[in-house]
Design a protein around this nucleic acid. Sequence first.
RNA 1: GCCCCCAUCGUCCAGCGGCCUAGGACGCCUCCCUUUCAAGGAGGUAACACGGGUUCGAAUCCCGUUGGGGGUGCCA
Length: 449
Amino acid sequence: MTDRVRFAPSPTGYLHVGSARTALFNWLHARSTGGTMLLRIEDTDTERNRPELIDVIFRELEWLGIDWDEGPYFQSERAERHRSAVETLLADGRAYLCDAENREVAGSTIRDGLAVRFRTPDEGQVPFTDLIRDDVTFACAELEDFVIWRSNGTPTFLLANAVDDADMAVTHAIRGEDLLSSAPKVLLILDALGHPHPTYAHLPLLVNEQRKKLSKRRDDVSIADYRTRGFLPEAMANYLALLGWGPPDDVEIRPMQEIVSLFHIGDVNKSSAFFDVKKLEHVNATYLRGLPVAEFLERVDPWVTGTDAPWPAERFDRDVLAAFVPLIQEKLRLLGDTPRFVDFLFRKDPALDDASWESAMEKGPAAREMLDGAIAALASCPWEPEALKDAVNEVGEANGLKLGKAQAPIRVAVTGRTVGPPLFEAMAQFMDRDEVLRRLRVARHRLRP
RNA sequence: GCCCCCAUCGUCCAGCGGCCUAGGACGCCUCCCUUUCAAGGAGGUAACACGGGUUCGAAUCCCGUUGGGGGUGCCA
């Protein structure tokens, strides 16, 4: 029999990085063992459910490249199974009805307005094997009688989880460590119902800089946010796979297919991991650099054709961008970095960056002389990168400046920023002489006298 | 409080009794390259929480201490 795993999110918020990592590790286990990945929506909490988020969660999983073989199943559609399991437990005396004050009420069938609690044994142990943590044991005496059925007529997570895992023949429950202490309760239900136990694997938690469990409320962790900031899904998934696990050969950035073939759930480590955006960015930059131009253009499209693009839509030229990409691709960390590297091509006037102007023009050396000199020199020199470079360099030398310093005022005048593409290539291949001269004059005018 | 889990560079990962004067990656620093920024190249910084055992030998096994985290809901 092949392994059957499930990712079982509850639709109470957007998919966040912790859940995505759990989904990914389930998926990795399924794909690396030839098993089956199920998707189950645990929507038993009618108070908190946000049904409109279900499709969003599906889309984020797909975006990450996480697919599933069965489902989605919805716990809310399995109420009869849950109810009959509770009736069985009630009839067997393994559970009891109780009122709002938690007082036991006589009766052996579910009744409106009453909750049902599982009667935990007074003594004994609940040992279980965890693929990541080895043997874990809880004493029954430590387990209070817990609610399995709410007074509003819905099952709790503990009951639904046990029944569904049994019905769906789930063999491996791979989930976050925050659920570790709920395992013995589920196991007790499974035993009382006569069902086998799945094997557990509790993943180390993802934590913030305070080493607290990542929380949707206080931490910026929505997968959607990372997507809109310009992270590539393959970079995101690759990085997520590195949290709690590492390849035996230390090659961290690699195709997911290779990770699948190297992954073993038992190799996952036990301690919590900090989600490090800096490293994520590095991974992303590496993937960005490796993208063929055509592919890059496709991926970056939302950032350059969207309404947020810092230029009038009618001035944007895809062919120009396509030709320009090789000049900047290796400089980007996020897709979202692209606009500010290319905006000067698609605007009438460059978007002047205050800090850049300040450093290159105000306190930078000899900005006036450089602009004046460049305006004169570039008026007649051959319009090609080397000639432009030589011309600017000559003006610089005349003012005692090396090229690095000399080009700064020109760069800011033409592109609006001190950081950008190779200047002379950009000018020679993507702008004409008149436009460059015009921008130099405009900048010079601002600098008067 | 009680229960459970965890403990190697700032961070992530490797290490599964000798190959460890602890390795890789991110970050940071220095230098080289250089038309900015990157990229690339060469270096550097930096860790086995502590105390006891076990063993010829411990980062690796055991116990304890300390520290951190999770749980303790008619949330999941």
